[in-house]
């Protein structure tokens, strides 16, 4: 796997690597992909219908609102302010 690909994948996964780390990751990924490529020799196609668990509309959760969680419990593991999660300023 080339560095460009690893860089792209790391962007997708929001990971940053130093150049050395990136090289090491590319090496690791190359040997991992080698194993993954064994499946290329078999020619089969996924059929979503075969994975049907036969759940019907009637089996789904009834629409009833229940109490939410206390705000402080939602926020307790976060940097928070004004009962909100604090994020660096997002510009659109």
């Amino acid at each position: 796997m080339d560095l460009e690909m690893v860089r792209y994948l790391s962007q997708l996964g929001k990971l940053s690597f130093t150049d050395d780390e990136l090289k090491k990751a590319a090496e690791d990924m190359t040997s991992i992909i080698e194993i993954m490529d064994t499946i290329k020799e078999i020619d089969i196609v996924y059929d979503p219908l075969k994975d049907n668990h036969n759940v019907y509309l009637g089996g789904l959760r009834k629409d009833e609102a229940m109490d939410s969680f206390p705000t402080e419990k939602i926020l307790k593991n976060a940097v928070n302010s004004e009962n909100c999660f604090v994020v660096p300023k997002v510009v659109e």
């Binding site: 994948l9 996964g13 990971l15 196609v45």
Partner: peptide, 26 residues
């Protein structure tokens, strides 16, 4: 991190059918 890279690879456009799709078929 390796698993995240591998997972993104398996799902990324252009590779999905060859990897994730095939794995699901398997």
């Amino acid at each position: 991190k390796r698993r995240i890279l591998l997972g993104n690879y398996a799902l990324s456009s252009g590779y999905y059918d060859a990897y994730y799709g095939k794995a699901m078929a398997l």
